[in-house]
Design a protein around this nucleic acid. Structure first.
Lengths: 155, 155
DNA sequence: CTCTTTCTCTAGTAAACTGGTAGGAAACAT
DNA sequence: ATGTTTCCTACCAGTTTACTAGAGAAAGAG
């Protein structure tokens, strides 16, 4: 149950391509610039940016004033979009989509748990946009989750 | 972002140790019985049951009328307990606990997303017990997530 | 047209993880 | 003692993760 480095790096890279007020930066930003700003190994980052380009989130330009630029509006890119582009489905169980699992006997209701889990993850990840993250202006559900008593404590 | 086979197997094994009305079965159930009922490779299952015993969820007895039995009440064992016993923390980012990450600059609010994600997962996994799963009687939050329009569809 | 810059793509790699297997030792009941 | 069943350690092949190397291709500057 882990968010891999690639996804974290991808989010941070995309955030580097947004302005203070949550828009796309209009000029191209070099991979090297992002690499240094976010402390991400350059060659590793290049692969991530390539995935983001292939999934249509980012646009690339070669040459001396080249680099990367957002292709979609930050208010239109959800965290879930980024995870799906980089890491695949939000939640898989034993390598399958939760709705494809078949349980019988005492386990017959276990599928409901995994469906609910995925639903809860979607509520957070599909409804949080790059713009919201950049500006720190989250929706009520996220704010509620973050102000819960032990939100910042481990269990 | 995946629930590993081990966790799914652990949940199903524990469910095999509960009665129709959500109590612990009082006699010992052999690993082989669980293995056949849930179609889990026996030797793999033994390792899982051992982890469940070491974390105090299950009690084992060797010998001819031996097997495994729940050590805690099914109403007291949450899905999160099982995941933590078998797989470790519910949600990690790049191998760290979400609250330990330090983000600056354009990424400064990214940590909030991971905290909220973990919070959402906790709401589902810590508040769903073995008894509820066995009896299919979930709490309102889980029911709401499962009756959402596209709960059973992939994205 | 050539040189520099920057992305593009394929390949490789060490370490960890995943989903198993194998086999003997230890404990329990009879 | 004997048979049953768990306990424990070790092993294993395949995949994934995080990262590196280097050649190639396009864009632009001069």
């Amino acid at each position: 149950m882990r968010v891999p480095a690639k996804v974290d790096y991808a989010m941070r890279s995309l955030l580097q391509l947004t302005t203070d007020d949550g828009k796309a930066i209009s000029t191209f930003v070099k991979a090297e610039t992002i690499s240094e700003a976010e402390d991400i190994p350059l060659k590793f980052l290049e692969g991530i940016l390539r995935q983001l380009r292939l999934s249509g989130m980012v646009e690339a330009q070669r040459g001396s004033s080249g680099g990367y630029r957002l292709e979609r509006d930050p208010a239109d890119i959800s965290v879930a979009d980024v995870i799906r582009a980089i890491d695949g489905p939000l939640a898989e169980v034993r390598g399958s989509k939760p709705e494809n699992l078949l349980y019988e006997g005492p386990s017959e209701n276990l599928g409901e748990v995994w469906i609910a889990l995925r639903g809860a993850m979607r509520e957070v990840l599909e409804k949080t946009t790059l713009k919201q993250v950049r500006m720190g202006k989250f929706n009520a559900h996220i704010r509620a989750l973050n102000t819960m008593p032990d939100a910042r404590k481990r269990r």
